[in-house]
């Protein structure tokens, strides 16, 4: 099937839930779906034998705080799906609101979603429902904040290049940016 045919079929089945869909200049199929119909669409994409989207390539989140402050939804989640048997490729976008961004898990469809979904929670603070093991993945337990949010500071430190060890340790003690105190 061509991308255009898949796009038309999905549009016909999910109607208003598909907020936007297009085949880009590079020939890639992109679909933006409302979050309440998202799981239905994903299950359909996986289980329809004509599409055969059985391979999840990656999941990522985007925070549009700086780029477009007036955007209706602050967050976006991107799913990249391939077919292992056919030459199909689809990119699914889901918009999430700033308050309580919640998205259902696709772990039962693609087990490869295990880590990327935990990363969504860890790095962006999205709540992934029905994930079998929802906790922080990369940052330590008890870390405050979600680093990939645009309003999370990069936390640049002043580095002391000095041969005087006393001077250096003094400078470090006054640093309040250091989140975890390794001396403890």
């Amino acid at each position: 099937m061509t991308n255009e045919e898949i796009r038309e079929q999905i549009e016909a089945i999910f109607e208003s839930a598909i907020q936007h869909s297009k085949v880009t200049a590079h020939g890639e199929l992109e679909v933006r779906v409302a979050v309440d119909q998202f799981l239905m669409l994903m299950a359909y994409l996986k289980q329809n034998r004509d599409y055969d989207f059985d391979y999840l390539s990656h999941i990522t989140g985007v925070d549009y705080l700086d780029m477009d402050p007036d955007r209706e939804f602050r967050f976006e989640v991107v799913y990249e799906l391939f077919s292992s048997k056919k030459d199909h490729h689809i990119r699914v976008f889901v918009d999430l609101p700033e308050v309580e961004p919640t998205i259902p898990s696709v772990y039962h469809l693609w087990h490869g979603a295990d880590f990327p979904e935990r990363e969504l929670y860890d790095m962006f603070g999205f709540i992934v429902m029905d994930h079998p093991n929802m906790k922080r993945l990369i940052m330590p337990e008890g870390w405050e904040g979600h680093p990939l949010l645009r309003d999370y500071p990069l936390t640049v430190e002043e580095i002391a290049f000095s041969h005087n060890p006393d001077h250096k340790s003094e400078l470090i003690k006054t640093q309040e940016d250091v989140k975890v105190d390794p001396w403890a």
């Binding site: 390539s57 990656h58 700086d66 780029m67 880590f115």
Partner: peptide, 22 residues
């Protein structure tokens, strides 16, 4: 994701090792 400036707005690496660990 690019916002039209000279810095990337969002960079995400799809890493085979990361996806392979589970």
């Amino acid at each position: 994701v690019s916002d039209g400036s000279n810095t990337p707005y969002r960079v995400k690496l799809r890493a085979p090792s990361f996806m392979g660990i589970p």
